[in-house]
Computed example of a mutant assay.
Amino acid sequence: MGGERRYDINQKAYIKLILHALKHRTSVVNGVLLGRYADGEVDIVDSVPLFHSQIGLLPPLEIALIMIEEYYSEKGLGIVGYFHANERYDDCELASVAKNIGDHITKYFPEAAILLLDNRKLESLSKVKDRSPVMQLYTKDASSSWKLVGSDGSNQLALKEPSANLVLLDYIASGKWKSIIDFDDHLDDISKDWLNSQIFD
């Protein structure tokens, strides 16, 4: 199923997810990817940070997914994948909770991907000036198992804007990660904007 399908991630979607992980460095965090699929390419247009404390709880997840689907379907976008960042810095394994949520999303969108934050790549970003995403791409293979894609050097996940990592470094340096809002925050205080429109003002 993974094949040679390409995944392009928009700068805004990419930055929101990483800032979310940076705000909650010692917690597992997750989010969903919004976009569309055409001609063998999944275009990830936006993302929504989900949780930093209730990762495996189904009721908050279901509430979040319903609200997200309602909002984005009016814009012609659907949920096309899932983002996950592990609690431990050196943990590069795809957790079972990530696979379970990914499985749920593939029921509705078979081409869905899971993006896993690569902390080591993120940490070295300021030194290396790399233009590739600081995430690992997982897709489902023919046996419906989640497999790491691109370990053979193929680039199936790409940033739409080549300067996205430079913008990300600016956002990190200016402390923008402190103001990111996820669904945990929104469910605690519904006046908090889970769309995070203020981040890019």
Rank of each mutant, 00 (worst) to 15 (best):
G2V: 15
E4L: 06
R5W: 01
R6K: 11
D8W: 06
D8C: 06
D8E: 12
N10Y: 15
K12N: 10
Y14P: 13
K16V: 10
L17S: 03
I18Y: 03
L19P: 01
H20N: 15
K23S: 07
H24Q: 07
R25W: 12
T26Y: 13
V29H: 01
N30Y: 01
G31T: 00
G35P: 08
G35Q: 04
G35L: 01
R36N: 08
R36G: 10
Y37G: 11
V42S: 03
I44C: 12
S47K: 00
S47R: 02
V48R: 10
P49V: 07
P49F: 04
F51S: 09
S53D: 09
L57H: 13
P59W: 05
P59A: 10
P59D: 12
I63W: 04
A64P: 04
I68S: 06
Y72P: 05
S73D: 08
S73Q: 05
S73H: 15
E74R: 08
K75W: 09
K75G: 12
G76V: 02
G76I: 01
G81N: 02
Y82T: 14
F83W: 03
H84C: 14
H84M: 05
A85H: 04
Y89L: 08
D90V: 10
D90L: 10
D91M: 03
D91A: 09
E93G: 08
S96E: 14
K99R: 11
I101T: 06
G102L: 00
D103T: 01
D103Y: 00
A113D: 02
I114C: 15
I114M: 15
L115Q: 08
L115Y: 07
L117P: 15
N119H: 07
N119I: 00
K121Y: 06
L122N: 14
E123Y: 03
E123G: 02
L125R: 00
S126G: 06
V128E: 14
D130K: 05
R131N: 12
R131G: 13
P133F: 01
Q136T: 09
L137M: 07
T139Q: 09
T139G: 07
K140L: 15
A142Y: 15
A142D: 13
S144D: 15
S145R: 12
S145Y: 05
W146Y: 11
W146F: 10
L148G: 12
G150T: 01
N155L: 05
N155A: 13
Q156F: 03
Q156R: 09
L157R: 06
L157M: 07
A158T: 12
A158S: 06
L159R: 14
K160D: 12
K160Y: 11
E161C: 02
E161W: 01
P162D: 08
S163R: 12
V167R: 10
V167S: 03
L169G: 04
L169V: 11
D170P: 05
I172L: 01
I172A: 00
A173H: 02
S174V: 04
S174M: 06
K176C: 10
W177M: 11
S179D: 09
D182E: 14
D182Q: 06
F183N: 10
F183W: 08
D185F: 10
H186Y: 11
H186V: 03
D188C: 14
D189L: 15
D193M: 07
N196Y: 03
S197P: 06
